[in-house]
Nucleic acid binder design. Sequence first.
RNA 1: GGCCCGUUCGUCUAAGGGUUAGGACACCACCCUUUCACGGUGGUGAUACGAGUUCGAAUCUCGUACGGGCUACCA
Length: 506
Amino acid sequence: MSKKVRVRFAPSPTGGLHLGGVRTVLYNYLFAKKNGGDFIVRIEDTDQSRYVAGAEEYIFDTLKWCRLEPDESVQHGGEYGPYRQSERKASYLQYAERLVKDGYAYYAFDTSSELEKMRNDFKSEQNHTPQYDLHTRLKMRNSLSLTEEEVNKLLADKTPYVIRIKMPEQETISFNDMIRGEVHFDSSLVDDKVLLKADGMPTYHLAVVVDDYQMKISHAFRGEEWLPSAPVHILLWKYLFGIENMPQWAHFPLILGPNGKLSKRDGSKYGFPVFAMNWMYPKTNELTEGFKEKGFIPQGFINLLALLGWNDGTEKEIFSLEELIEKFSMERVHSAGAHFDYDKAKWYNHEWIKQLSIADFRLQIEKGFLPENHDESKLDKIISLVKDRCTLLTDFTEQSSFFFKAPETLDTDSVKPKWNDAKQLFFVELIRNYELTLQWDATTLESNFKEIASVNGLKPGELMLPFRIMLVGGKFGPGVFDIADVLRKEETISRIKKALDIFSAK
RNA sequence: GGCCCGUUCGUCUAAGGGUUAGGACACCACCCUUUCACGGUGGUGAUACGAGUUCGAAUCUCGUACGGGCUACCA
């Protein structure tokens, strides 16, 4: 009888959520839903100096946009709250003290300048950055190096202290990672990480273990950057709650940019979004672009993220969220880091836009992607014409604006060199014909167009490009008679007339 | 520097001892379309290197190289 699957995403509210973060959410969510479990979001805000206003709300807005709603969180409630670590502060101290009492941790009174001095003094060719560990701890000011009286005196004097874990001298710490298999560490090489900070807040290391225990987390997933600190967490589980109760770990491969771990800087540097949604740092007003505002739809975004490091073993690449839940398995998550490819990302989005119904596309486009002066009554027809030509929602504007507003400039270079009197006369006659046409639809317009052409001994193909330039302004867009259909008689004729003046001008 | 993780086309990846090493994005060509896309067909393009195990290795083992991560009273 295995216990209920409960997974958590534990972001630090220090800014926007980037690709890797959302993928971690996604894999957590998929694993939970696949196994009938719960998905919990816990806010890791133990570093008060890094508090950023609005970041927490942003995280939840992002999850909502992605349709990855938690079962329990600050916003969703649940039986294991509070879901904000700063509000759980009281429960960490007792565990830290228990560790000290049991000899697994100790008080350390070193000031930051003393720590800095140590790192300088012990620095060498062989040891780039000396650690606070079994080699150095007896040379520092802590309850291991000082006498009991000295320690008690320091504590009584309210000297600021931290509690550090005392890493054992010779122990191999192993665990089974769901993605990587057995991973081993030599305890003598791991440093004495701070567990409880001088301000009474826990560090991530203590908080993650205590909270995962108290929230009955069954599987703990996080990015590969956490792998080196895993031995600390494993020891803490062993000391505090029993290794048999420890969740199963999986460390996801990193998402890489052109130069290592993808960073928000890569976005502006290479011209692609890195955050899920736009994020503006309140203090600096520095904007980091988001996939949402760039014109991605949630289905496309989720799909591209899911396949960045995972596949179902077949050649299928387009998955809905429901399909992902059904097919997902941790065993098929890759162990190697994946470079983010913006071209492929856009392809996923395009595939999803093509699958959208007109109504669904309209819903998406109405969230800020409509061109100015658009005509509501024509929207559905226009969407049916141009939807598949949009890779991003932002493409809709340039694909559709000519429907609502006559082009300001015409691509005359594509027309003028081959322009002649015969063509001029054709369009004059076309205007006359279209003015008298009672039936204004694409089929009628096309057959009339071709009939006049043939009567005048002209090839329709040589006339259709000019016609398109007249209506659209450039060499793009859907079928030209469909465009004329939507434009209606008056506007179509007006654009032909206007263009004729330009084309015939010497 | 130390520790940890990793290494199949440019990129994402399939192939878990026997395949002409497959697919997708991107790129190129052709077809379709008298626009541009979409779509279709085809093409260029990869097992990092060296040993070993084996009748046989992309696949197992070891070494080397390379890449990445961590090395805070940040997460």
